[in-house]
Design a protein around this nucleic acid. Structure first.
Length: 202
DNA sequence: GCGTCGATGGCA
DNA sequence: GCCATCGACGCG
C-alpha cells in the first residue's frame, strides 16, 4: 500500500493542458506557481507573484490586436509555449501562450521571488527575463522542456488581487480592465500603486 | 518619496 | 513614431 503524507507539500509539473484556457483565467492561476530555469546545467527556481493577461485580437493592449505577423504568430500556436519579444530596444519580455490554436492569447510574467537563497532581483518583467536569462532565443520554446518549465506547489495558496495593467495607457477602454494579477503579500511586485498597503484580516 | 527623462532597436 | 521598461537624476 502506498503511503501519502498530506502534510507535505506536493510539487507537480504543469503540463500543456494547464495552459490551454483563456488568459484571464490562466493569469491569476499562475500566481504562486514555480518557474524552473536551467542555467549552465543547474536548475534555479522562482515563485511567480505578478502576471498580466492579454486576451486576444480585440484587446488593444495586445500585440495580437495587429493580427497575424512574424512577431505574433507564436501566440496563434498551441498553449504552453514561450512568447518572448524585445521592448524599448533592450528588454526581453517573457510571456506564456494561453488558449488554443488560432486564439492568440498570452500571459506576461512580470515578477517573481527567487527561491533557494538565490539573490537576484526579479521584480519587473525586464528584470525577470534578464535574471532568468530568458531571451528571444527562447521564443517558441515548449514550457514543459527541461530548459524552462513550471511547477505547482500544493501548499502555496496566495491571496490574489486584480488591478489594471501597467504601461498600456494607449489602449483606450482596455487600459482600465482588471487584467493584472498580484500576490498582494509579496515584497517582489514591480509596482504597488493601487494596492492596499498590507493585507491582513481586512 | 515621487516625477521626468534617455537609452536603444525592432516593429508595422 | 511608437513602445507590455529600467535606472539615474533632481527635487527641497
Amino acid at each position: 500500500m502506498m503511503s501519502h503524507d498530506l502534510s507535505k507539500p506536493m510539487l507537480i509539473k504543469l503540463e500543456h493542458a494547464f495552459f490551454a484556457r483563456p488568459a484571464h483565467e490562466l493569469a491569476p492561476d499562475l500566481i504562486g506557481k514555480i518557474l524552473v530555469r536551467t542555467l549552465r546545467g543547474t536548475p534555479v527556481r522562482a515563485r511567480i507573484v505578478e502576471t498580466e493577461a492579454y486576451v486576444g485580437t480585440h484587446d488593444l493592449a495586445s500585440h495580437a490586436s495587429k493580427g497575424l505577423t512574424e512577431r505574433t504568430k507564436i501566440m496563434y500556436g498551441p498553449a504552453g509555449r514561450a512568447y518572448v519579444y524585445l521592448i524599448y530596444g533592450m528588454y526581453d519580455m517573457f510571456n506564456i501562450v494561453a488558449a488554443g490554436l488560432d486564439d492568440p492569447q498570452a500571459v506576461l510574467i512580470r515578477a517573481a521571488e527567487p527561491l533557494d537563497g538565490w539573490a537576484v532581483d526579479l521584480a519587473g518583467p525586464g528584470k525577470l527575463a534578464r535574471g532568468l536569462e530568458i531571451t528571444r532565443a527562447l521564443n517558441g520554446i515548449d514550457l514543459t522542456s527541461d530548459d524552462l518549465y513550471l511547477m505547482a506547489n500544493s501548499a502555496d495558496q496566495p491571496t490574489v488581487v486584480a488591478t489594471p495593467r501597467i504601461g498600456i495607457d494607449y489602449a483606450q477602454e482596455w487600459k482600465d480592465q482588471l487584467l493584472r494579477f498580484v500576490d498582494v503579500n509579496s515584497p517582489a511586485l514591480s509596482n504597488r500603486k493601487g494596492l492596499p498597503a498590507r493585507v491582513g484580516l481586512i
